[in-house]
């Protein structure tokens, strides 16, 4: 009796301990995010005070040394580069996972998967360097100057492709075997099975993959900085150079002082707002089933 009650008691306190340590860890993670947001706001406050938020969208240009702080062209730059790369990478990534699972012979599928994983592991500065010395001169031959929105979209596509490909791959691996056997028993051909049975089953996984790759596309800095040309303008063709918000911070932070520095923190805030908008809209579209 005594031993039993002891046991129950100790089990309960272990649960209690685990529960509280998990709460603690969750608090730490949450606090870090909140601290970053608070820090961004505090650093941006001086310039928001005497310049005002509105001027970051209505000023004629971005020349912080001369007191002009228009962020809109960079907001568009970020959006265009992100949209372009997500539009190309998503079908490529999903179809490559489909190939890997349902069409490739297993001798090929394994090394192919390793190859995609390798692609995910390459540091972004390497992609940027490759883009700068190979891709940009190639584009310059077609349509000068070379560093352009197109170069940015292509580099980003290569960078986010493994994210969606691996995510889709993992989701496809989790499709219950009964579904596939059922489809086979109905005599469905392979593509019909994939389209009619597999895709609906893995929808939430694919959606999570798209969100992750979009997040990476927005946040990418080094490679974009090296291939996009960094001219602050709204591009009229894909051959025009652009500057993204992340590149703006990386490019100017090292030498910025005073209001210029604070204005870069405003870039950071705007970037954060974009990510929040992305996550909120993702939650809304998936109606909370994103991780289900």
């Amino acid at each position: 009796m005594t031993s039993l009650s002891n046991n129950t008691l100790s089990r309960w306190s272990t649960d209690e301990l685990l529960c509280w340590s998990l709460r603690g860890i969750a608090t730490i993670a949450g606090t870090i995010v909140m601290l970053i947001v608070v820090f961004l706001i505090v650093e941006a406050l001086p310039v928001l005070h005497h310049v005002g938020l509105l001027r970051f969208f209505t000023d004629p240009s971005w020349h912080p040394a001369e007191g002009l702080y228009n962020l809109t062209p960079m907001l568009w730059g970020t959006l265009f580069a992100m949209t372009g790369s997500v539009l190309i990478a998503t079908p490529l990534g999903i179809l490559s996972a489909v190939f890997c699972h349902y069409y490739a012979p297993s001798v090929l599928a394994r090394p192919y998967r390793r190859l995609i994983e390798l692609l995910a592991g390459v540091p972004s500065v390497v992609y940027g360097f490759w883009g700068l010395v190979v891709l940009v001169p190639l584009i310059a031959e077609i349509q000068p100057p070379g560093p352009s929105l197109l170069a940015g979209i292509l580099i980003l596509t290569i960078m986010i492709l493994p994210t969606i490909a691996l995510m889709a791959d993992a989701s496809l691996a989790n499709v219950p075997q009964q579904y596939l056997r059922g489809a086979a028993a109905l005599g469905l051909p392979r593509w019909a099975t994939i389209r009619g049975v597999v895709f609906p089953a893995v929808r939430s996984g694919l959606f999570t993959g798209v969100i992750l790759e979009t997040g990476r596309a927005i946040g990418e800095t080094m490679a974009i900085l090296m291939v996009c040309g960094n001219v602050v303008q709204i591009p009229s063709t894909i051959f025009d150079p652009i500057r993204t918000l992340t590149a703006n911070i990386a490019l100017e932070m090292a030498y910025a002082i005073g209001d210029h520095r604070a204005a870069l923190f405003v870039s950071g805030l705007v970037l954060l707002a974009m990510i929040v908008a992305l996550v909120v809209s993702a939650e809304w579209v998936s109606r909370g089933r994103m991780y289900g």
Binding site: H63, E66, G146, P147, G229, N230, P241, R243, A250, L251
Partner: peptide
């Protein structure tokens, strides 16, 4: 020249 007058095609770090 003033930086606002510069018509750049590429801006570098």
């Amino acid at each position: 020249i003033r930086n606002t007058d510069v018509k750049a095609h590429v801006v570098i770090g």
